[in-house]
Amino acid sequence: MKKYIIAGVLVVAFVAYLVFANKGSTPVAVVSTTTPTTTDPAPATGTVSGGTTSGGTGTGSGSGSTSGGTTTGTIGQYKDGTYTGSVADAFYGKLQAVVTIKGGLITNVTFPQAPSGGNSSEVSAFALPALKQEAIAAQSANVNTVSGATQDSQAFNESLAVALAQAKN
């Protein structure tokens, strides 16, 4: 349940972040959450990992956060202010979340520290060549082990949890 709360909070935070971050610039306007083609309605763990921040979406940009963490409101679950999470081990690098709360709601999440591992190209709208495509679907076959990007999201959860713990009313 906690994960879903964090997931929900993150989606809101990311939307807020994009809207906020784009006040000063132009391109991105509307954001909607992914509807996975798989059956489970849970939007993953709602985690944010370093790949993106290292991927050129602007680490720590558009923060405008009221650093100093002045506590001014007690409307929601969290006290207003800016809270910095722990530096978590994503192995690919350090990962650290900074959360801004306004009116009791998360209004911004930035990553002053995020894993490196390459510089992303600009998001490209080019269609892929004629490689085979398919909609992903859950497989029931037994496996010995699973390949996936886990460590970044765990590190993110860890850092965000620390930041939010500080913000608790």
């Binding site: 996975p36 798989t38 990992s49 993106t52 679907a137 859950a138 886990t150």
Partner: peptide, 29 residues
């Protein structure tokens, strides 16, 4: 298995290997 990036408890593909290395890069944001 390849982990479902939208649902971490699920696999969406199974690969069968002897000595090949398998690496996944990903992000959820």
């Amino acid at each position: 298995g390849i982990k479902n990036p939208f649902n971490a408890i699920e696999n969406i593909k199974v690969m069968y290997v002897n000595t090949e290395g398998v690496a996944t890069s990903g992000t959820y944001i």
